[in-house]
Amino acid sequence: MNIRFDGQRALVTGAGKGIGREIALLLSQLGAYVVAVSRSREDLETLAHEIHGEVIAAELGDVQQAQNAARQAGKINLLVNNAGISIPQSFLKTTVEDFDATMAVNVRATMVISQIIAQGMIQRGYGGAIVNISSQSSHLAVAEHTAYCASKGALDQLTRVMALELGPFQIRVNAVNPTITQTPMGMMAWSDPAKSGPMKARIPLGRFAKPLDVAHAVAYLLSSDADMIHGITLPIDGGFQTH
């Protein structure tokens, strides 16, 4: 296999840091023209020098900004819905405001952006590929992550419905579900060894994921090598689910 995306336009949300940045860099290295979206202008300024493409600053928790970013991105062949937030809170202390904010970015933005991008793919008649960045938290209850777990569970179901309805247009939709990943957000939530130790001990490979581990899986699912892979939620968990 020799994955290349020459001549294709890829939209990556949440591309400023962590997994999203790694995905944007990898897709650019593989020949794609990358449209990178982030709420951080500082992150985008540095990323712009490292990719072949363009950058868009947007707060995707705002519906209008999410729609504008999707339209501004132009004719997209490959979409990666990576943008996400985590506000660690126990169930009893989760606020309505933080729950709504999490769902707005982690689920609603994916729907809003995918609707616009998929409509463009359908109009052009060439199909396309979409990958949503979910989490093992979509099916594993994690203490202090009420809103995050709920949002990723919803994202998995959204992925399946998208796959069901967009498949006839030759638009493939999949999700990847990483374990804890060594990003600024991941390390913030899992910096305490007393908390991270037991989780890592349940991973047969004995480590958390690196952003590049996720980026490699995303590139494969976007590529023509994965032409018959559709509607899946792919664990990237070092064997966590073998327990």
Rank of each mutant, 00 (worst) to 15 (best):
T242S: 10
A226M: 05
Q29I: 00
E59D: 15
L222P: 04
I236A: 01
M1F: 06
S38R: 03
G231T: 10
L234H: 05
A147R: 03
L234C: 10
P88Y: 05
V55F: 06
Q182E: 15
D156G: 09
L92S: 13
S137M: 15
G128Q: 13
A147K: 05
L212P: 00
E42I: 09
Y148A: 05
F208I: 06
G18W: 00
I116T: 13
R207K: 15
G7P: 03
A175I: 13
S114G: 15
I171V: 10
E97Q: 14
I171T: 06
L205D: 02
A10I: 07
V96Q: 14
D100N: 08
T110R: 11
I203W: 01
M199I: 14
I171K: 11
N82Y: 01
E97M: 04
N82F: 02
G125L: 06
A219Y: 05
P178Y: 02
T233A: 15
T181Y: 07
Q119D: 14
A201P: 01
A83H: 00
S224N: 15
D6K: 12
A83C: 07
A219M: 02
T179R: 00
S223E: 10
R124F: 03
V131P: 06
A70I: 03
K200C: 09
I23G: 01
F208M: 07
V214R: 00
L166G: 08
R4V: 10
A58E: 08
D100W: 04
L140W: 05
D192L: 09
H230Q: 14
Q241E: 09
G18K: 00
E45I: 12
N132P: 06
R124C: 02
I130S: 07
Q8K: 15
A141M: 11
K200W: 04
N77Y: 08
T233W: 07
D6L: 08
G61T: 12
L30I: 07
L222S: 08
L205R: 12
I203V: 15
Y148W: 13
L221M: 02
L164P: 10
I23N: 00
I133W: 00
V80Y: 04
Q8E: 15
T242D: 09
I3K: 02
T94W: 02
H216R: 13
M199S: 07
E54I: 03
G74Q: 06
E97R: 10
V142L: 15
Q157R: 14
I56G: 07
F99K: 09
N81V: 04
F99P: 04
K195D: 03
A48R: 14
L234N: 09
L79D: 11
I133S: 08
G128V: 05
A201G: 03
N174R: 07
G14H: 02
D6C: 09
D227F: 11
I122K: 15
R172M: 14
G238E: 02
T183R: 01
L155C: 08
S40P: 03
T13L: 04
I171N: 04
I180A: 08
I3F: 03
F208H: 00
A226R: 01
